[in-house]
């Protein structure tokens, strides 16, 4: 999950950026007038990109890190209001065109996963099917890990991939998927409360 947080006291800039970034790769974009408002979102987790004016950055990075304790990684983009020659890849000049702003944001968002190879969405692997079938039978992640002699972390990672490939997130949704795909016989589950 990646999130973009824009902090700026100008509604024009907040609103403008939120429209421009509606096409970016972030799962969610949050708008705030002041960094204090971050205190209302202590549960924000995952990969977070914060966009804020250069002049308020200073020691903020440490403060923001203390508020966003659940973040896996935080990166920053600075808003530049005056044209200057030294605009770097970590700056957004407000005169930039929308496409190049989105590109810059996406590049930074993608850099959160530099090591991750993006696989094309295709069929489930054999191991993923093993996990899916146990989910479909109502086993919890811990039980699945024990049964397949793998770590719970690996189970969670398999489940994430299964959901990405199938478009189904909930356990009972996956049970239904397994039946519809004839990976499991309906009679094995029809009498139980799995769905």
């Amino acid at each position: 999950m990646s999130k973009v947080i824009i902090i700026c006291d100008s509604d024009i800039i907040l609103k403008g950026l939120s429209v421009i970034l509606s096409d970016c790769n972030a799962d969610e974009v949050f708008l705030m007038h002041h960094k204090k408002e971050l205190n209302d979102y202590p549960h924000l987790s995952g990969y977070i990109l914060i966009i804020l004016p250069l002049n308020i950055i200073n020691d903020y990075e440490i403060q923001l890190k203390q508020i966003l304790i659940n973040a896996i990684n935080i990166k920053y983009l600075h808003l530049i209001f005056e044209e200057k020659t030294s605009i770097t890849s970590s700056d957004i000049y407000i005169g930039d065109n929308p496409a190049s702003i989105v590109k810059k944001v996406n590049e930074l968002l993608n850099s959160f996963w530099t090591k991750k190879v993006i696989e094309p969405i295709n069929d489930l692997t054999k191991r993923e099917i093993d996990v899916l079938l146990l989910v479909a039978k109502g086993l919890a992640n811990k039980e699945i890990a024990d049964k397949l002699s793998i770590s719970i972390h690996t189970v969670i990672s398999h489940r994430k991939n299964i959901s990405e490939k199938t478009g189904i997130k909930s356990a009972s949704g996956l049970t239904m998927y397994a039946v519809l795909k004839k990976l499991i016989d309906i009679d094995e589950i029809s009498t139980s409360d799995l769905i």
């Binding site: 549960h43 199938t166 478009g167 189904i168 997130k169 909930s170 009972s172 949704g173 239904m176 998927y177 519809l180 795909k181």
Partner: peptide
């Protein structure tokens, strides 16, 4: 209280995908 909403959204999302992608 906020986290409560996630489950609802998940099931809704699944139901839509099941009908669109997987029903005969």
């Amino acid at each position: 209280f906020e986290k409560e909403h996630n489950n609802m959204d998940e099931k809704m999302f699944d139901l839509k995908n099941i009908i669109i992608k997987y029903l005969q």
